Simulated assay, not measured.
Amino acid sequence: MNAIFGVLFHFIGGFASGSFYVPYKRVKGWSWEAMWILGGLFSWIIVPPIAAWLTIPDFCDIIKDADSSTIGFTFLFGVLWGIGGLTFGLGIRYLGVSLGSSVMLGLSMVFGALMPAVYYYFKVVPGKQGLDYFFTTDAGLCIIGGLILCIIGVVLCGRAGILKERSLKTKQVENKSEYNFGIGITVAIISGILSACFNFAIEAGKPMAEVANLLWKQNHADQGEFLFQNNVSYIIILWGGFTSNFVWCLFLLFKNRSYQDYTNFKTPISKNMLLCAIAGTTWYLQFFFYGMGESRLGNGASSWILHMAFIILISNAWGVFLKEWKGVSRPTYLAILSGIVLIVVSICVIGFAKTLT
């Protein structure tokens, strides 16, 4: 039952992450940096402490009592993840929702799942999965099989993106917009690697989550793990994410004088602000439900891979729904659909792996 609920929570979190950029696409007349930092205020600064306050009454004391190294490394990985998130928006801008999310999240999935396992292979910590786990146990082999299937699915999505670019050049489609495969793929690779730092940040902030879990268990004996234990760690992680994003967006706002967007009455200011707030809040929900899924599946590779796979799946589904692939050739459309199918299969395989433990 834990496995079923864990997969369900990861699906909801993946849906939130795969959908958050859709409101941004409805913002009219604003620069990217103007809408990105406004949405970020909600996802990084406003919503996280509210969520922690609602679920962990003593979260401020937990943070205050945490070791300085725990706070420091959690914040540092949050900064690095924030750079990945910053370039994530640019990647989608140049590649579109489907292709951009597939490449960036695919790389993030691989690095985020395997790098902690490499670390724990050399520094053994009770309860943590080392790299040998994936090659010496049935569950580990099943997870690796699901990861390989998901990577193949991501490759097919990438292939579809290349075919799409060729199709656009050949047919000179008018709505090509800002699609640029060369710039987009470079940004996507950087983003994908740095975005994996979020999983490292969760590991670094785990001592705070464990305190929250212990305090909850003292009043809720025999009720399993605390669903919302990670909400306290998210506050520090997202402070780091806000720092890197705020610095860059502030630079762009003054460089491009785009801070004037907020007072440009030729644009629907109130509507744009509301859309940014919705986008930012939706983005935070991915972390909220990721923590719930992790409490049921554990903070191992399976949780991270499932989370990433669901995001890739939903992002590609949105790409099809938003007609980003309209007008492309049949082989291109078959490539993106095949990629989606393989990702769905990989999710089933990884979910099954949890039943083998």
Score class of each variant (00 low, 15 high):
residue 195 S to G: 14
residue 176 K to C: 10
residue 167 S to V: 04
residue 135 F to M: 06
residue 189 I to T: 14
residue 144 I to D: 02
residue 201 A to Q: 10
residue 197 C to T: 10
residue 154 V to P: 15
residue 138 D to H: 05
residue 135 F to K: 02
residue 146 G to R: 01
residue 170 T to M: 10
residue 179 Y to H: 07
residue 153 G to P: 09
residue 208 M to T: 03
residue 154 V to T: 15
residue 143 I to E: 00
residue 187 V to A: 14
residue 169 K to R: 11
residue 155 V to Q: 13
residue 154 V to L: 14
residue 200 F to L: 09
residue 197 C to W: 04
residue 168 L to H: 09
residue 201 A to L: 05
residue 209 A to N: 00
residue 191 S to I: 12
residue 193 I to D: 10
residue 151 I to Y: 11
residue 139 A to V: 04
residue 156 L to Q: 07
residue 137 T to Y: 08
residue 167 S to D: 12
residue 194 L to K: 15
residue 147 L to R: 08
residue 145 G to D: 00
residue 178 E to I: 07
residue 153 G to H: 11
residue 195 S to Q: 14
residue 175 N to P: 06
residue 149 L to Q: 11
residue 152 I to H: 10
residue 154 V to H: 14
residue 153 G to Y: 13
residue 165 E to L: 03
residue 148 I to V: 00
residue 206 K to D: 03
residue 203 E to Q: 00
residue 157 C to R: 14
residue 143 I to P: 00
residue 151 I to H: 11
residue 158 G to C: 14
residue 187 V to F: 10
residue 180 N to L: 05
residue 138 D to N: 09
residue 196 A to T: 05
residue 150 C to G: 15
residue 188 A to H: 15
residue 181 F to S: 05
residue 208 M to S: 03
residue 139 A to R: 01
residue 208 M to R: 08
residue 148 I to K: 03
residue 182 G to S: 01
residue 197 C to N: 10
residue 153 G to N: 12
